[in-house]
Design a binder for these strands. Structure first.
Lengths: 136, 136
DNA sequence: TTTGTAAATCGTAATCATTCTTAATTAGAA
DNA sequence: TTCTAATTAAGAATGATTACGATTTACAAA
């Protein structure tokens, strides 16, 4: 996902182009890591001291709904990152020290196609946590 | 995990046998579902109106540390259930309607043994969400 | 059985992330 | 430029979780 594509989606869905959204998208485009609402506020309040959490949370939520961002829960906080290009579904290794992620080109659901007949699968989560090569 | 085994662990680690702990363990032994701190309070305050959240959270945390309970994050709240008997590592299908769980006798890490050399794996999460046969 | 003491609990306040509310501002269409 | 719905600011409210001082309790040792 890049910024242009994000704006296409937003425009298509009738959302307006605001400088707050622009800045939020810029922040995400500059990192691979999962970051929190607070991380974003900390960056944005330098330029916009009166920045509101509401604006951040509302936009994060919008972006997740539109598939621009992906969301995960790390140690009790929501973390977000730019949605990967969706050429193939995959999962992530997440470094607990530096926050960097590595793509795992494998989905366990492939193996489980018909393992639980009668169960309607709506979602799944598969994440691996640890330390990346530079962090141990 | 059954209650006797839980008490063995607690006693071994020097924890005392209290009626609050007993009641918490009883609640868990009577359900397969993941339940929240509030669920527990709601049951316990019938008998102990002055029940403190502190007591519940402290004990839940202790029980998780000792491997008596397992913990997961569902819709922003911590949920707990009795730790499965550890004869084999496995994962869960979790029904989002009724909360019942189904064991998935498969761990994706088996397949990924050497897929990411250099990465130190400390933990992983694999959960499947949806509706069980009785709920759709 | 009584007593000493660390552990556990109570009651409540504090904290943290997140959501809500209302009024003011702004982007983009007409 | 004007209009209108979308967006934002500011701060209060909420809900889960943790922290803390005072009190009570389990249990081991006398």
């Amino acid at each position: 996902m890049n910024i242009e594509k994000a704006w296409d989606i937003l425009k298509n869905e009738g959302f307006k182009k605001t400088d707050k959204r622009e800045q939020i998208l810029n922040i995400f485009s500059e990192t691979e890591k999962y970051i929190t609402a607070k991380d974003i506020l900390n960056v944005m309040k330098k330029e916009h001291p009166g920045m509101s959490y509401d604006t951040i949370y509302r936009n994060l939520s919008t972006f997740v709904d539109l598939g621009i961002l992906e969301e995960t829960e790390l140690t009790g906080e929501k973390h977000f990152r730019m949605q990967c290009e969706a050429d193939h579904h995959h999962h992530h290794f997440i470094c607990m020290s530096c926050g960097n992620i590595k793509e795992i080109p494998f989905c366990p659901m492939e193996v489980l196609q018909n393992a639980i007949p009668g169960y309607e699968i709506e979602n799944h989560k598969f994440e691996i946590y640890g330390n990346c090569p530079s962090c141990h």
